[in-house]
Amino acid sequence: AQASVVANQLIPINTRLTLVMMRSEVVTPVGIPAEDIPALVSMQVNRAVPLGTTLMPDMVKGYA
């Protein structure tokens, strides 16, 4: 199954992502693919992302 990017902590709005904030997990619905984690580093989220939330393309500025 495809692993997705999941928030490893609460990520406040406009925060630049770092590796420690993200983990890969097989979840439904599928979000951003886990292999994109390196590309997500330093991108900003456009909303607060609670712990355990799957990151979707529309949550990350410049990803989609």
Rank of each mutant, 00 (worst) to 15 (best):
A1N: 07
Q2V: 12
Q2P: 15
Q2F: 08
Q2H: 06
A3V: 07
A3L: 13
A3F: 12
A3R: 05
A3H: 10
S4D: 01
S4C: 04
S4A: 03
S4R: 01
V5F: 01
V5A: 07
V5N: 02
V6T: 07
V6E: 02
V6L: 07
V6K: 04
A7D: 01
A7N: 02
N8I: 05
N8E: 08
N8W: 05
N8L: 09
Q9I: 14
Q9H: 07
Q9P: 02
Q9L: 15
Q9S: 14
Q9W: 09
L10E: 12
L10V: 14
L10F: 13
I11E: 01
I11G: 00
I11S: 00
P12G: 07
P12L: 12
I13E: 08
I13M: 14
I13A: 10
I13C: 14
I13R: 07
I13D: 13
I13N: 07
N14S: 14
N14W: 08
N14F: 11
N14G: 12
N14V: 03
T15H: 07
T15Y: 10
T15Q: 10
T15G: 07
R16G: 14
R16D: 05
R16K: 10
R16F: 10
L17N: 00
L17E: 02
L17K: 00
L17A: 00
L17W: 02
T18D: 12
L19G: 05
L19H: 12
L19V: 07
L19R: 10
L19D: 09
L19Y: 11
L19I: 12
V20P: 12
V20Q: 14
V20R: 11
M21W: 02
M21R: 03
M21A: 05
M21N: 11
M22R: 00
M22T: 01
R23P: 02
R23I: 13
R23S: 10
R23V: 06
R23F: 05
S24P: 13
S24V: 11
E25Q: 08
E25A: 09
E25F: 06
V27W: 03
V27C: 03
V27L: 05
V27M: 09
T28R: 03
T28A: 13
P29A: 04
V30K: 05
V30Y: 10
G31P: 00
G31I: 02
G31L: 02
G31T: 00
I32K: 00
I32H: 01
I32M: 03
P33K: 11
P33F: 15
A34N: 05
A34K: 07
D36P: 01
D36I: 09
I37S: 04
I37A: 07
I37W: 03
P38A: 06
A39I: 14
A39F: 13
A39N: 14
A39P: 04
L40F: 02
S42C: 07
S42M: 09
S42R: 07
S42L: 09
S42W: 07
S42Q: 08
S42I: 03
M43D: 05
M43I: 04
M43W: 07
Q44Y: 13
Q44M: 14
Q44E: 15
V45H: 00
V45Q: 01
V45A: 06
N46R: 11
N46H: 09
N46L: 12
R47T: 14
A48N: 13
A48E: 15
A48R: 05
A48F: 11
A48H: 14
A48G: 09
V49S: 01
V49R: 03
P50D: 12
P50V: 13
P50T: 12
L51Q: 14
L51D: 15
L51R: 10
L51F: 13
G52F: 04
G52Y: 06
T53I: 14
T53R: 06
T53P: 01
T54S: 04
T54L: 05
T54G: 02
L55G: 01
M56G: 04
M56W: 06
M56I: 12
M56R: 10
M56S: 10
M56L: 13
P57N: 05
P57I: 04
P57R: 11
P57L: 03
P57F: 05
P57T: 07
D58Y: 07
D58S: 12
D58I: 07
D58W: 09
M59A: 09
M59W: 14
V60W: 01
V60K: 02
K61N: 11
K61L: 13
K61T: 13
G62I: 04
G62N: 08
G62L: 05
G62Q: 12
G62R: 07
Y63K: 04
Y63F: 06
A64L: 12
A64Q: 14
